[in-house]
Design a binder for these strands. Structure first.
Length: 493
RNA sequence: GCGGUUGUCGUCUAGUUUGGUUAGGACGUCAGCCUGCCACGCUGGUGACCCGGGUUCAAAUCCCGGCAACCGCACCA
């Protein structure tokens, strides 16, 4: 038996079948943290996003936008990223080990050190308290700030400083007022966006897990905090159970209703969206026992969040953060209102307010990984992806039983009939068994085989990926049979 | 970003210690034969020394630099 970890096996499968692979890899100076999706990966990613649209965005009547990836620096000055999306670092002059300066001082002095403290003050704290390298006792360098945004200039003049957005949501805040005014909506309203974000990570690792260019699907819910008790959608989900890991390390499983009553979560609105996300990941194929919400400690929380929950999924790598959820209050609209000198207040039931914001920030690349990780199945020598039908990149394979006696031609005709409506794959090469195994590995749920009976009575066999069982149906009914089983249909429809 | 280890066909790998090979094999893949339902078999083909520089008559092999991967540390909105 191979000693490979499951993560390696899943990664190997993804490379071998071209789901994703390192970007610009034919060049020897290709960069870590940038990955390309191949044909199957693109389709899988698209299906994950489509599922998100159906089960969250559309279910909740959210509005979707698509904002620029490049934004002027003033946006990030106002949002706080210019100042706070940085790590204050110091390194040992002897052994070159790097430390987070604020955390190092905090640990040594056992008192809270604000992350945003100027470098000079951190320097003097290090000096005054005689703090040295915790590894070798060497002297520490001056504190320097590392900003994780990619910054450059747009246009021919150097003056127009811009940055690649480090999170997609800033566009949602910038566009909020226009969307609100043009779409005739009222609070609470969700604005959603899926797109790329960019972070200059110090050390990207483990292929899709930590990227410098990543795809996020983000939702910002704008609401009036005064009206939170009358949030009626809560009634739809109050009995759903959620697992929590609290800052005091307590683990518990509660219904949404209990979580609100016991004040584990802020309010009904927050828990409603936590439930929607949990249900989404169950549809991605994750066992509910492997989904939990972890409460973030004060020092883990981003600067804009009053409280934060990470949706974590237990994978072959251990618990992995897949969605970051933040209670952003009125922070964002306030700072952009001030930064842009634009009044972002709106009229809600006759009252002028700045809406508050609840955010769900989903990592799509990580979601794709957890989907693969959960779907990966070994059964004797057979490897197959037990993906839900509506996520499978290739939905149906068409095979002639043998490549002779007109079976290939018949199969081709059938393939042509299906290929536009479904993601279909045709293969006549090698034995039928080998062809089944090939498509198992990429999670094709159904294989349609044309045999000698097809020529006589227009029937085909459909072979099921998971149990290898076959049924025989009329060609005429094939499309409807597939349609019924391949599309995602919400439970209440 | 620091330290350690490692880079050979799509994948796994032999060869590197001790410089000289048509760089070998397996799986995959392609062509053909075979094949009446779960990785059959046979024949043939395709396909690699991470990149750059140095040493040498000669470099996959030794040296230096870069890049990447893995592990540990640090970091991680």
């Amino acid at each position: 038996m191979s000693e490979k970890s499951k993560f390696d096996k899943v990664s190997d499968l993804a490379f071998r079948r071209g789901l994703y692979f390192p970007s610009a890899h034919i060049y020897s100076d290709s960069l870590a943290g940038f990955w390309d999706y191949g044909p199957l990966g693109v389709t899988l990613k698209r299906r994950i996003i489509d599922l998100w649209r159906k089960t969250i965005v559309k279910r909740d009547e959210m509005l979707e936008i698509d904002g620029s990836q490049i934004l002027p620096e003033s946006v990030f000055k106002a949002s706080g990223h210019l100042q706070s999306f940085v790590d204050p670092l110091t390194e040992c002059k002897d052994c070159r080990v790097t430390f987070r300066a604020d955390r190092l001082i905090q640990r040594r002095l056992e008192k809270l050190i604000p992350e945003a403290l100027p470098s000079k003050e951190l320097d003097s704290l290090i000096l005054k308290n005689g703090i040295v390298c915790s590894e070798c006792g060497g002297e520490l360098s001056k504190v320097f700030k590392f900003n994780m945004m990619f910054r450059f200039s747009a246009g021919p003049k150097l003056g127009n400083q811009v940055a690649l957005r480090p999170e997609t949501c800033q566009s949602i805040f910038l566009d909020f007022l226009r969307v609100y005014k043009t779409m005739r909506v009222k609070l609470p309203i969700g604005i959603a966006q899926v797109g790329k974000s960019f972070r200059n990570e110090i050390s990207p690792r483990r292929n899709l897990i930590r990227l410098r260019e990543l795809t996020q699907a983000e939702i910002e819910i704008f609401f009036n905090p005064k009206n939170i008790e009358s949030f009626t959608k809560f009634d739809q989900i109050m009995d759903v159970t959620l697992r929590f890991l609290l800052v005091n390390d307590q683990e518990l499983e509660l219904t949404a209703e209990e979580a609100v009553k016991k004040k584990i979560v802020q309010n009904k609105l927050v828990v409603y969206y936590l439930v929607l996300l949990k249900q989404f990941y169950e549809l991605v194929g994750i066992n509910p026992q492997n989904i939990r919400y972890r409460e973030l400690h004060d020092e883990e929380r981003p600067f804009y969040a009053q409280s934060a929950w990470d949706l974590e999924i237990k994978t072959s790598l251990g618990w992995l953060e897949v969605v970051a959820n933040h209670y952003r209050t009125d922070y964002d609209l306030k700072v952009h209102s001030k930064g842009s000198k634009t009044d972002l207040m709106i009229l809600d039931n006759g009252e002028k307010i700045i809406p508050w914001v609840w955010e769900d920030s989903m990592g799509i690349d990580r979601t794709l990984f957890v989907a693969l990780d959960a779907a990966y199945t070994e059964e004797k020598k057979r490897i197959f992806l037990k993906l839900p039908n509506y996520l499978a990149p290739i939905q149906v394979a068409v095979f002639p039983l043998v490549a002779k006696d007109g079976l290939t031609e018949k199969a081709r005709t059938l393939y042509d009939m299906l290929k536009v409506e479904f993601d279909t794959f045709f293969d006549e090469k090698a034995s039928i068994g080998r062809r089944y195994y090939r498509v198992d590995e990429i999670g094709v749920p159904y294989a349609v085989t044309i045999d000698y009976d097809t020529l006589k009575d227009e029937t085909v066999t459909i072979r099921d990926r998971d149990n290898k069982e076959q049924i025989r149906i009329k060609v005429g009914g094939l499309k409807d049979w597939l349609k019924l089983r391949l599309n995602f249909i919400p439970p209440n429809q």
